[in-house]
Amino acid sequence: MSTFDIRTRSKSDAIVLEIYGELDAHTAPRLEKELKKLIDEKFVNIIVNGSSLDYISSAGLGVFMAYIEDIRLQKGDIKITNLKPKVFNVFDLLGFPTLYDILDSEEEAHSRFKSSS
């Protein structure tokens, strides 16, 4: 039984995706579907709040890789916040911090979106 869940809410000029549980090759398609839906609806300022994300494998990271270019071409971005240290470690092992804004809080992500608009 998968413990994975995604909740979406909108806050000022960004959409926040809260991710719960374990993101692996089984659950990654759900995140992919959600991101694709947002891009199709032209919501491209996306904050992924990982405070309840307990686990990520490369299949989960791959979803961020697959859509980031499309989103940036539309002048948006994915900013990732509130990662637990063990989850951040996986992003770090693959060099993601040089390519993505990985921030401590949602507030920081909002202010970066404001300053870049």
Binding site: M65, A66, E69, L94, G95, L99
Partner: peptide, 13 residues
């Protein structure tokens, strides 16, 4: 990682 991003690849990690 940069090449993967440029080529929209997501496997190999």
């Amino acid at each position: 990682t940069q090449d993967q991003l440029d080529q929209k690849k997501r496997s190999g990690y």
